[in-house]
Amino acid sequence: MKKDHHESDAFYEEFEVFSKKKDGSPIQHQFSLLAPNEEMALIMAKENFFRREPAVDIWVVKRSNIRKLAQSEKEALKKLDKPYRETKGYADLNRRWRAFKEKGKDEWLKGEKEA
């Protein structure tokens, strides 16, 4: 049997499915499905991925509309530590506060004695 490959390809379009679990939660990727168009993708997404899990919102996105990273781009995401922009870069603060507290106590005790 001869197949029109163009049309079978057009029926099997890839869609990525995203959802929001509950109010206030972020949109998350769920899975992908094949459908001929957005409307079909949507009605199928609901039952394919949310039979049990709750969802308050569902998005379907045609995969060809997503600009993804190539492997070299992904590998290039690894970067050197930037401690100055993270809390862990400021681990010395506690020690410094403590020093001020110690000093404050001494000052206070000194004042007591003098009085």
């Binding site: 029109d4 163009h6 049309e7 079978s8 390809d9 057009a10 029926f11 099997y12 379009e13 001929p36 168009n37 079909m40």
Partner: peptide, 13 residues
């Protein structure tokens, strides 16, 4: 069925 719906998408594109 697949032919019919594939047809809509390829026609739309």
């Amino acid at each position: 069925v697949r032919e019919a719906l594939g047809h809509i998408s390829s026609a739309a594109v």
